[in-house]
């Protein structure tokens, strides 16, 4: 565990906390893509199956359970909470799951380390996480007024990705056996997806304006 990895995890946790806070405090999920949140829940389920058969550290297990619980909590609010679900931008959040899930599943079946159920699901979760933010980014482009909490949520997720890349560079330099092309390439693609968002986020932050993405 290095500092970059810890910062990455903390930004990830913070992003989820900001989102849950927004939903609970404002009783609204306006601007949040349920598709992205459900994809993240699926990512965590597929990746953290190893909770049942492998143990790395108390920290890892605790974080895995936290990510799973919070992901399902967010989905539950957006789908079933009487007040919150009315604020969901259903008509705008139209990204099709199949366009993301099918290619990731196919790729995981072909490009993996071992052709076993858990390994394929783990690889699938890596690929799917890389693109799961897309429905959220599309929704934000369609939304005229992006509130600050939503913008900060996505910015924190981007920061998490950025620190994970620093973590990989650090591990590549310091650990003999750290060659993980599947994780790296997916991670770089995932982080690159945020580049455009960050560009406008920085512009609006400098101008002290509300975030607006060009159509």
């Amino acid at each position: 565990m290095n500092l970059f990895r810890l910062c990455g995890d903390m930004f990830h946790l913070l992003s989820i906390m900001v989102l849950l806070l927004k939903i609970r405090a404002t009783r609204s999920c306006r601007g949040i893509s349920l598709k992205t949140q459900e994809l993240y829940a699926l990512v965590f389920v597929c990746r953290y199956l190893d909770l049942f058969y492998s143990f790395i550290s108390v920290y890892n297990s605790f974080m895995k359970v936290t990510f799973l619980a919070t992901a399902f909590s967010i989905v539950r609010y957006m789908r079933y909470d009487k007040v919150v679900k009315q604020t969901y931008d259903r008509e705008q959040d139209t990204f099709r799951y199949v366009f993301l899930i099918a290619p990731c599943l196919l790729l995981a079946l072909v490009l993996n380390h071992r052709f076993t159920l858990t390994e394929v699901l783990w690889t699938f979760s890596i690929y799917l996480e890389a693109v799961a933010i897309l429905p959220q980014l599309v929704l934000m482009q369609r939304t005229q007024n992006i509130d600050n909490l939503t913008a900060n949520y996505v910015a924190l997720l981007g920061a998490y990705r950025g620190f994970y890349i620093l973590n990989w560079i650090y591990r590549f330099a310091t650990e003999r056996h750290y060659r993980q092309w599947i994780v790296w390439i997916s991670g770089v693609i995932q982080t690159a997806l945020y580049a455009d968002f960050f560009f406008y986020y920085a512009l609006c932050w400098k101008a002290n304006k509300r975030l607006q993405l060009p159509a």
Binding site: R5, D9, H12, D50, S54, I56, S57, N60, M63, K64, F67, H113, R114, W122, Y164, N167, H177, Y178, R179, Q180, W181, I182, V183
Partner: peptide
């Protein structure tokens, strides 16, 4: 050469 990833990250 890609090694099987040590699954110690989140």
């Amino acid at each position: 050469d890609d090694e099987e990833a040590p699954k110690d990250e989140l």
